[in-house]
Nucleic acid binder design. Structure first.
Length: 559
RNA sequence: GCCCACGUAGCUCAGUCGGAUAGAGCAACGGUUUCCUAAACCGUAGGUCGCAGGUUCGAUUCCUGCCGUGGGUACCA
């Protein structure tokens, strides 16, 4: 409908002198339903160009506009110069039939938009996923779902680094725990675990070692498998054992969230195939790289930064920025039209360097969208929980899901815009009865299922081709209009890479449905009306189920 | 210091490619149930859209400055 009106408006405007060729009329839904179903402010925007009063322009447009009365029942000029359109009931009921026909595909577009890659999670295998990773994972996965529905061929990629200092410290941590098991009488030392809390660790435990209990478990498995010989294993064996165990754990956690990556991209492969070196050379040729103090620098000051940035340390080891650039080049080489990165706010200073480098090397950096999400503060008993992966004091994503379920976890991460801080109140989410919006949505879906069951019970059979034009009650019209917005909402959320629009929208659907449910009976009404209303209930079920599917949340048959 | 977000109802947050009377949930207050799930619905109350300027026919939305909160500012990731 929006497309139809846009096209008609454009045609009309082209016939008016003085309208710029590139003028695109905008249509939006007025806040107040009394103002119609769609409105355009085109006349006001044109006032400048045409040097005429907006209302007069609006009158002219309305006079010239040719509209199909079976689609638009009413056009009016209002306020300072808005043109308001009202949909014909007939049109709405026709469209409702389309919803039923499309079913689980309603809101999904044909796969014609090209290839998209969404990089998310990307946690190095040093420990279990935490709540912070959870926000990343759920955001990324839902953005990927949205792009999928919006018509992209989507790759979901997890980028990780299993080389370097972090992993060395991890391996040493495991080794120390093995030593502790095999030689319990060795000297120990005291380390701080959390504010004011301490623990005893073997003297060989590395500085900044990983203190989580999972390290002890990995050590125990090694001792179970190798006995005392475990201590004699080389560091790579400890590293491998830790990495295997931790990745298995991470994949298990992601699976609980219904997340399955397309692939895992190992940073190390960029070294093996020479892309790190090639990237550095390419940058050097562009003259944005120089040597100083034994290190290799990237002239980020040329791109508005205060300082230059080290790409290769004086030790000869690249900082993570260089492989990041090389990695992003692979995304271009793999021909992705849309490239989305999901990063925590702590990466906010690093991605501009990557984009600058891509730009210098001739890639269209505007294809890269970086979604930055702010940190999650877990609140337990009214107190914020401080978290650190290295110290043992954190709440894992698994623990969170144990407490509040995967559905609630996903929903809470998705209901807020990514760039606001998220206070995740565990007590509230757990209590989660009437306060929890996810239940409200699921309940609306379950209630429709209940109606369907009831219909079967009492032997009600809806007409094959229900007369949808019987749906003239205010609550029915409101619900239909809300349902029909679903495809636009998906597209808008996908374009903006903003999943949180969907929970907001689905709540509107649930509210509109519950209002309808409250005002209109289905079973027991006269056959034709009952059939039409049953069709409306089914259409609502489709939209709720599809929307929840995009969010990765279950749509239960009963609650 | 500099960079990036954010600041909207008592609380948690939508809305912001400039538009008509700024919305929702929770909390508060009042009402509704012979009926397909009351995990509901209806109503009332609640606001200098952080502050001050600027651009505009029109600013919560764009620009500048200030204040506040968070994050970043490593030859760590």
């Amino acid at each position: 409908m929006k497309d139809y009106l846009e096209a008609q408006l454009r045609t009309t405007l082209r016939g008016i002198d003085g309208v710029p060729d590139d003028f695109e009329p905008m249509l939006e839904q007025p806040n107040d339903p009394d103002h119609g179903d769609l409105a355009t402010n085109a006349a006001m925007q044109l006032a400048r160009h045409l040097r005429k009063a907006p209302r007069a322009i609006a009158e002219d447009i309305v006079d010239l506009l040719e509209l199909d009365p079976s689609r638009i029942s009413e056009v009016s000029v209002a306020g300072p110069g808005f043109i308001n359109f009202r949909f014909a009931d007939r049109f709405l009921s026709d469209k409702l039939g389309d919803v039923l026909e499309a079913g689980r595909a309603f809101g999904r577009q044909d796969r014609t938009k090209g290839k998209a890659i969404v990089e998310y999670v990307s946690a190095n295998p040093t420990g279990p996923l935490t709540v912070g990773h959870g926000r990343n994972a759920v955001l990324g996965d839902t953005i990927a779902n949205l792009l999928d529905w919006a018509g992209y061929d989507v790759t979901r990629e997890y980028y990780f680094n299993n080389a370097g200092r972090q992993m060395r410290v991890l391996a040493e941590s495991v080794r120390a725990r093995v030593e502790e098991l095999v030689q319990p009488d060795n000297p120990t030392r005291t380390v701080e675990v959390a504010d004011g809390e301490t623990a005893e660790v073997p003297a060989s435990f590395p500085e900044d070692g990983y203190l989580g209990e999972y390290i002890v478990e990995i050590a125990r498995e090694l001792v179970d498998a190798h006995g005392e010989e475990a201590l004699a294993l080389d560091l790579d064996a400890f590293k491998q054992a830790a990495q295997d165990a931790i990745f298995e754990d991470i994949e298990g956690t992601l699976k609980r969230l219904d997340i399955e990556m397309s692939d895992y991209f190992n940073e190390h492969s960029l070294y093996e195939n020479g892309q790190i070196e090639a990237t550095l050379e390419a940058l050097r040729e562009k003259g944005v790289v120089y040597e100083a103090d034994g290190a290799t620098w990237f002239k980020t000051t040329e791109f508005g930064k205060e300082d230059d940035t080290v790409l290769v340390k004086s030790t000869g080891e690249p900082t993570y920025r260089l492989p990041d650039i090389a990695y992003h080049i692979t995304k271009f080489e793999r021909d992705f039209d849309v490239i989305v990165d999901v990063f925590g706010a702590d990466h906010i200073a690093t991605y501009p360097d990557v984009l600058s480098a891509l730009e210098v090397l001739g890639y269209d950096a505007s294809r890269v969208d970086v979604v930055i999400y702010q940190f999650v503060t877990l609140v337990r008993g009214g107190e914020p929980v401080k978290m650190s992966t290295r110290k043992a004091n954190y709440v894992t994503l698994d623990e969170l899901m144990d407490e509040v379920s995967a559905d609630v976890t996903r929903f809470f991460f998705l209901m807020r815009s990514a760039n606001t801080h998220l206070d995740f109140d565990l007590d509230l989410a757990k209590e989660a009865s009437d306060k929890n919006p996810v239940f409200y949505l699921q309940y609306a879906h379950a209630r429709i299922c209940s109606i369907l069951r009831k219909a079967e019970e009492v032997g009600f059979e809806a007409d094959e081709n229900p007369s949808l034009d019987l749906l003239t009650h205010e609550a029915e019209g409101g619900l239909i209009k809300t349902l029909l917005r679903f495809p636009e909402e998906i597209e808008r959320a996908a374009d903006a890479r903003s999943p949180h629009h969907i929970p907001t929208y689905l709540r509107e659907v649930a509210v509109a449905f519950t209002r309808f449910y409250d005002a209109c009976r289905i079973i027991g009404e006269e056959q034709k009306l009952a059939s039409a209303r049953m069709a409306l209930a089914k259409a609502t079920k489709i939209v709720l189920a599809n929307g929840l599917t995009v969010l990765g949340i279950d749509a239960p048959e009963r609650m």
